[in-house]
Design a protein around this nucleic acid. Sequence first.
RNA 1: GCGGGCGUAGCUCAGUGGUAGAGCGUCAGCCUUCCAAGCUGAACGUCGAGGGUUCGAAUCCCUUCGCCCGCUCCA
Length: 527
Amino acid sequence: MPDPASNPPSPATAKSMDEIMALCKRRGFVFQASEIYGGINGFWDYGPLGAQLKKNLRDAWWQDVVMNPCWGRTGPSGERVRTVPLDSTIIQHPRVWQASGHIAGFNDPMVDCRETKQRYRYDHVQVFTRQGTTSEAPMFAFVLGTETENRQRKKAEKKFDMKMEVVALSDIAPADWPKVLAPHAEAIGTLTEPKQFNLMFKTYVGATAGEDDVAYLRPETAQGIFVQFKNVVDTTRVKIPFGIAQTGKAFRNEVTPRNFTFRSREFEQMEVEFFCHESEALDWFSFWRKWRMEWWESIGLAGENLRLYDTPQKDLAHYAKAGSDVEYRFPFTAPGFGELEGIAYRGDFDLRQHAEHSGLKDNLKYFDMTRGEPLPNGQPKGEKYFPHVIEPSAGLDRGVLAILCEAYTKDASRPSPEIMRFHPRVAPIKAAVFPLVNKDGMPEVADRLHAELQGRFGRSGFIETDAKQSIGKRYARMDEAGCPYCFTVDGDTLTGQTVTVRDRDTGKQDRIALDKVGGFLAGKLGA
RNA sequence: GCGGGCGUAGCUCAGUGGUAGAGCGUCAGCCUUCCAAGCUGAACGUCGAGGGUUCGAAUCCCUUCGCCCGCUCCA
């Protein structure tokens, strides 16, 4: 009888991240990047099964977002969702990142306190000093708007007899830093030099490039979409509302890469920028918010470990009007959640920024012929505007990690205690075909069935076959690799033209006709 | 960037100054008519890396890299 006062562990919290990571290594899902050289902080490679799993997830997104957008649903305006794909470059013109705000916003110098181990944003720290600072007077540093302000003010008032002023830490001469009392410190002079944090990866364009040729690896794929918005509109007959979708690598020099692949410095995004008229934007935001949640559920994350979380207004970026996150309760975040995808209503911020910085100005606006006052001939006059944007931005690697965590199951009652319960759509191995024993004509039948299934389903994932060792071992291996169905050729196959199909999740077996195997698998894989 | 923990075979780990080990996995052969079964055999190690102390270092010291946890950060 469990203690009712204690919270029962959720399935995710009960899972051990160490065990999941060990399985990922052992079965070739995830390897440390450059491992034989000692690894490199914040980078991970996908092994054979992981690479296929990741591709399956990316393909599922592409199919459901680009090729059959939102499963054919109609949006708030009553017409089917339309999106078009794009593949823009990792390296863009440096001014793209000026326009987007990343060059300004991605560089926050920090100072550390040697005594208290606290870290502060350099530009947030101010100091109380005596008016007309004398060389001996101490300085009381504080962080604006925190309790340190009052505490340090009291000290300063006592010391300076009310004759004091407030100066930014950045305006204090380096020679005076030894006199600064850090916000939480007891001793003076404990603050380190400001340290620059460059969250964008810098590179140089051109074989003989110098400092004039600095460029950046994109920290998000989104800006490539905004930059090509006009070309897409001019060349593809798209009409608002519509989306532009793109998957691709992005790079961020995270301060602290942590938690397996969750916060990596090189990662892959799956993003849509959905353009619409301001009057419909909130409806589209609701539409995407709801559908993206359903999509993650559809690929195997349904359950209490997935949630849709609305960003509080105070936490939104300055340009954002609304935001929701699809979040997963990872073993390392439990009982909290970690973000898989952010759905943001960004207003018209990005297109306006690029209109301004590129000099295109109003030429970057969209001309909507369905809006505006009716003309004498009955047609609308049209309206020129910057479309508003809904941005569902998903992390592919985080999706893979969530799927790995969700799929990992430990069942001590089974001969093979570790099972990866992948949804068949994303499972890297779709099916396996075994001869029960490696003789009596069974291998030949198994080979034929394997060839048939590979020809029909090999485009969506691996179809395995294996005749070595005991059947139990082969089933166990497939459980660890997450293969949903195993077909076994046995003595009855030779006489009755049937095989057994074993279900990974239950271990149960059914007998089906040899010539129905393809149809059975097609039904299960949704192919 | 700070603090703590850890790093030995593919995985899990033992080995605290004296010949690098175990279990599992992997591979080969035999056997095998449904769940990591059995028998026989085999391969696999920069003991994370570099330096130092020592007659001798996986073991002690220094430096460094990586992973995990906590702080911090996350436009």
